[in-house]
Design a protein around this nucleic acid. Sequence first.
RNA 1: GCAGACGUCGCUUAGCCUGGUAGAGCGCCGGAUUUGAAAUCCGGUGUCCCUUGGACUCGGGAGUUCAAAUCUCUCCGUCUGCGCCA
Length: 425
Amino acid sequence: MLDIAMFREHADIIRADHDKRNLPHDNIDAVIRLDEEWRQARYDSDQLRKVRNEAARGIAGAKKSGDTAAADSIMAEVKTIGAQIDALTERADACLAERDALRMRVPNILHESVPVGEDDQKNTLHSLHGEKVELDFEPRTHNDLVEANGWVDLGRGAKVAGSRFYFLMGDLARLEMALQQYTANFLVERGYTLVQPPLMMNREAYEGVTDLADFETVMYGVEPDKFYLIATSEHPLTAMRMDEIIEPAELPVKQVGISQCFRREVGAHGLSDRGIWRVHQFTKIEQIIICKPEDSWQHHEELFENALELWDSLGLHYRVVNICTGDMGSIAAKKYDLEAWLPGVSEYKEVVSCSNCTDYQANRLRMRYRTTDGNAAVHTLNSTAVATSRALVAIIEQNQLEDGRVRVPEVLQAYMGGQEVLQSL
RNA sequence: GCAGACGUCGCUUAGCCUGGUAGAGCGCCGGAUUUGAAAUCCGGUGUCCCUUGGACUCGGGAGUUCAAAUCUCUCCGUCUGCGCCA
């Protein structure tokens, strides 16, 4: 959420941003109005508390000097002040709660380099990487190939869990682990600390890092313990320092999270989502950075470069798009997506998302760092390194051989005992 | 799961029994002193509203009271022991 100071001092900036996103200004105006109401109620209750505190000091003084009559007299005077304070406090709390509920729905301020457009069709092409291999046979889709080779059992996944669950088997499971190891090592060598986070989080921590709508459409709840299964390790890693004041010497925090990710994928259907492209559970290796505000755009490029070099090293062809205003979501100020080429369906599809969230998550999480001028919100950034299910799809489709088997990317062969081709079951 | 102990400002801790302005040390920031540094001394060092003064803050929430770090209830967490267990 945005700093309340933005609403008080620079509401024009928020309004201009809403115009770019084609959003009405209602929430902005309501936040400003509720903020004023809250301050008034707060001031009134503070004044009454002042009266009560003065009386309390009077009582204490009178009792100390043995003048019980004076003490009783003051006590009688302030007998009912507590109820008035309670009423005003209740009103102040209600205004504040409503102010912040609305403030949570106001999206982040977009970076000036974000292209304006209504939906993902208006994302702009940033760059192309690797070579688009021309196969001298008809390319098959990954869902066709995994089934033919016995690498994925979706039917039995549906039987024991539900649709979009799967068993990953044999050499493809082995390749998945190789990909995890390789990617984690790749980033550890660049100075990132490897972290295995909790796979569940409580509601309060989760509200700090995600859009409220995600609780309905993305996250699985675990009853009766009121936990949520994480949708990405970005969430626990970023929430890790909730309510903390970070010493400047600790910044930037650079971590690589590795975890299983769980997503409900409500409303997702269609041919292009078949196989293991869009599933309820997958492994993801994620980069996160927590840094000082003045460094965040430089770090955003660093995360982006890491992702590019990693995907280049896998020998895959992909393109990069700069996400436009209409496709952005509420958390990020700017986002690059890497989209891998899938010859089976002749499409580029999203495999990596690299975001600078500026102070939006930090404000919700009350995550600050010390400056000589007081405490200030940090900036948070995150980027996929590899989501294994989607990386496997890209590898399978781009590295497929005419006989239906799949070539192992060279850098991963060492993690599979030198194996060069995945064998079917 | 059971029993006990504990949770106070960035860190360490006092205060709790017996309710009445949250104190000290360390760290950090500023100043004095110094050629410079150390040492020393002085001041500052949580949050919010600022209507210049104020209110809030002792793990969270609720209660009792004119008044709660302090008393009561409850939840959370940590430690120790027992139990269970990959």
